[in-house]
Simulated assay, not measured.
Amino acid sequence: MSTLTAPRTGHHTAVASAVSHESDPSAAVAELAAALGSRADLYAVFVAPGYDLGSMGAALKDHFGDRVIGCTSSGNIGPHGYDRAGICAVSFTGGLRARTVTVGPLDDAPGAVERAAADLADLRSGVGDSESFAILLTDGLIRNEDLLAANLMAALGDVPIIGGSAGDDLTFRHTAVYHDGEFTANLATVTIVCTDAPFRLIRLQHHETTDTILIATDVDPDLRVIRAFNGRPAAQAYADAVGTHVTELNPTIYSKHPLLLNAGGSSWVRSIAAANADGSLSMFARVEVGDVLRVGRPMGMLDKLERQFTDIEAELGPISGMLAFDCVLRRLEFEEHQLADRVGALLAEHGAVGFSTYGEQFNGMHMNQTLVAVAFA
């Protein structure tokens, strides 16, 4: 069954969303098209696990042509909040122009951006004096979003970026990005949106830094592995810092006490993926030798989101719709604290549509356990 939210009309852009839980890809996309129509300026589609991606890609191409971007997800954010199954879509109509280029393969992210330099420069030149932002969707298993985001920011100059890493509901087997009728691994898409409608980019995390400092002294940046903090085995040093035994380390502790990097006058979450048998820590984001990381603590998980929406509406007026990329680790933490329904309802109330990610990008930075979004007035 598909669900449609009524279009929310902003200054020039109408935003609508729909979700389908039909098991057949063609039937699911047909429901979305029936709900959203086929004349929007841009569609964004997010696909939870369980679908044949070949059939899904063909159906998206058939119904929406070349005006659709999307990726696989670890669950979606739709008209009813968090949704771990199905396919979710949002459409933007009126007052905007959108163009997309592909970047890949991503094994060598700087090289991929360099190969796409001419196309990216063409995108950038098309902005002119318009207000614009870029949407980055990238494979979530290549583990180099840090370099990808930094190099794209250099290529796009003053065009701000929001992005999300494709997911597969924590199975870590296959993530893919949609382009031109196909879901492809090892690929990213960059879409520049120029719009007359007022908008605001959002970055929100609910962890704050403590005074406990861990300095990365032995790392493998490309593998996202920290071997030592302050000259000591990383897992042991982290366990001591959060007041537990190394054998008790688990995803619950990692989610409550991520590591935060201060850069550019702000803090950025570096989440721990696992403690390894050799005493090292695997990370969900890149860490360099000498990085000073602070142990984080959760603060006001729901309150911070409510305040963020209040601030946005004070600046823009009522929100007409929002494209949101929200770390899957945030949803898991909300579920653990029985807050997922309340957070999901708050997101739906403000027209948020998007997906649960394996990582988020904001301008030139990649991070974890963060919500990034673009909200339209």
Rank of each mutant, 00 (worst) to 15 (best):
V113R: 00
D240A: 11
M301D: 09
A28S: 12
A324L: 14
A27P: 11
I161V: 13
F229E: 08
N368P: 06
V68R: 08
T189L: 04
V19K: 00
F362K: 14
S280Y: 06
L201Q: 12
H12I: 00
A58M: 02
E288C: 06
S74R: 06
F92G: 05
R330T: 09
V289L: 15
A155K: 03
M367W: 06
A27H: 13
M365T: 14
C327K: 05
A377R: 08
A274M: 07
D122A: 15
S267R: 09
E335W: 03
P49Q: 07
A176R: 05
Y238E: 04
P318G: 06
D311P: 00
L339R: 15
G104P: 01
E306R: 15
R224G: 05
D146N: 14
A58N: 00
G10L: 13
D211H: 02
A134Y: 02
D196G: 14
G351I: 03
L36D: 04
T217M: 11
L261C: 09
S125F: 06
V177L: 00
A16P: 04
A44G: 01
P110N: 00
E288F: 14
N186C: 06
F284D: 03
L32Y: 11
N144L: 03
T210F: 10
A27N: 05
V372Q: 13
T184P: 04
M299C: 08
P258M: 13
R307Q: 06
T189M: 03
A34P: 09
R297F: 03
